[in-house]
Design a protein around this nucleic acid. Structure first.
Lengths: 221, 221
DNA sequence: TGTACATCAGTGAACGCGCGTTCACTGATGTAC
DNA sequence: TGTACATCAGTGAACGCGCGTTCACTGATGTAC
């Protein structure tokens, strides 16, 4: 997707390779795999092409990964970690801007929607969704990581809605797990539509509609 | 997913094969391909396994399809046709039960949610989403079919919300295309979560939450 | 009704290419004494 | 400071298997006269 320069000119590298250059190569392999899998599927992505874009040989790949399944495992593990960090950061920004749990959530939705609007091109896709639609190609460990990813989303927002629910009364009764899942559902579904319709603003619009709907559901003008 | 008997005992077959047995074999190949692609991806699904479950030889496959890409094209075309029919049927049932466009839509959501609840096991997935996440493996024709599928959903529900909007005033302003897309987004996203969490009731719950939210958005108690 | 031909719905064997994986080896860097 | 060894981050060649595709052929059914 985006081109990363291995040596950015602006920032002088005091410690050029934090964990050795192997770590960097491994990250670049994971980046290449991430992009390829989201557009061509797992079985449709060959090790050959990954090492070609990374600039090493095929046997170099097997220095970093036991086999192709190991690549999927490490990729998903990294995704969960990074996704968690991104969510934490947006949450922290929302928390810094308001004290009320509902206001914080509405701010979070705005921040997330803005982030989606600012992406160049159409959203590249979500690794969880991509792998879900090929799950039989993977082992139990990978499927457990899929479960974990979705469960983390649910728990993050359930806690949030518990705080909201303690202070606000919804117009009609809502189940906390369900409204917690709703955010993830809107994002995942919108990504699919964004790509199908080639409409890069769709995701932001859906998030803002969801924001409006959450507000009215809790009777906020 | 579900086992179809080629000769159901209850109904005597007056015309056993409407368009010859070749048509039936072709349908069974498409069925096998549909199931396999939703769980293992397109490249991960071999022609070998499709003909094995269908009970013919590999060269028999190439009698029905020019190549593997042709299979994807026919599969998506059939999906769009059948999906359209299912939606038309649920729409007709909702129209028969009420005159008001909003009541009709709320009934439609209930019917759709009930249908999802009644499915045994977890939702097998949506072919559009599966192929979107492997789109680079396909030609322009297939990608145009993906666009068409999503566009049909949008247009179907935009017309519906135009009728609703003519009669009801939303609490906060809503864009018709956006709320039209919202239904598809909720379904697509919920399918991903249903499968990740292995929670077969999630889809129905999300649809009913969406129903509640549409009601409150248009200020209906 | 019988014969000739055409179409339908496949079969069976063979093909070459690319894929994932292995294995012995290597040059650069790090560490111990 | 020099030497010996270990580890890191790979290389290069080879492998066998399975995949998509082709091609000549075939038995059953349909159609024309």
């Amino acid at each position: 997707m985006e081109q990363r320069h291995s040596t950015p000119e602006t920032v002088p590298e005091v410690q050029p390779e934090p964990q050795g250059k192997g770590k960097r190569t491994r990250e670049r392999l994971l980046d290449a795999a991430n992009d390829a899998i989201l557009t061509k599927g797992f079985a449709g992505t060959s090790i050959e092409e990954l090492v070609e874009t990374t600039g090493i040989t095929k046997s170099g790949f097997f220095y970093h990964f036991r086999d192709k399944g190991d690549l999927a495992r490490q990729l998903l593990a990294r995704f969960i970690e990074e996704d968690d960090m991104v969510m934490d950061e947006l949450t922290a920004r929302a928390f810094a801007l308001a004290d009320d749990p509902m206001q914080r959530f509405l701010l979070f939705l705005n921040l997330y929607a803005d982030e989606m609007d600012d992406m160049e091109g159409v959203h590249p896709g979500c690794l969880v969704a991509a792998i879900i639609y090929q799950e039989q190609a993977f082992d139990r460990q990978v499927r457990e990581l899929l479960f974990e990813a979705a469960m983390r989303w649910r728990e993050r927002f359930r806690i949030w809605f518990q705080a909201i629910d303690a202070k606000y009364t919804p117009v009609a009764p809502v189940d906390l797990d369900t409204i917690a899942d709703a955010f993830s559902a809107v994002v995942e579904g919108s990504i699919v539509l964004t790509r199908a319709l080639n409409d890069r603003q769709l995701l932001g619009r859906q998030l803002r509609l969801f924001r409006t709907m959450v507000k009215t559901t809790y009777g906020i003008a």
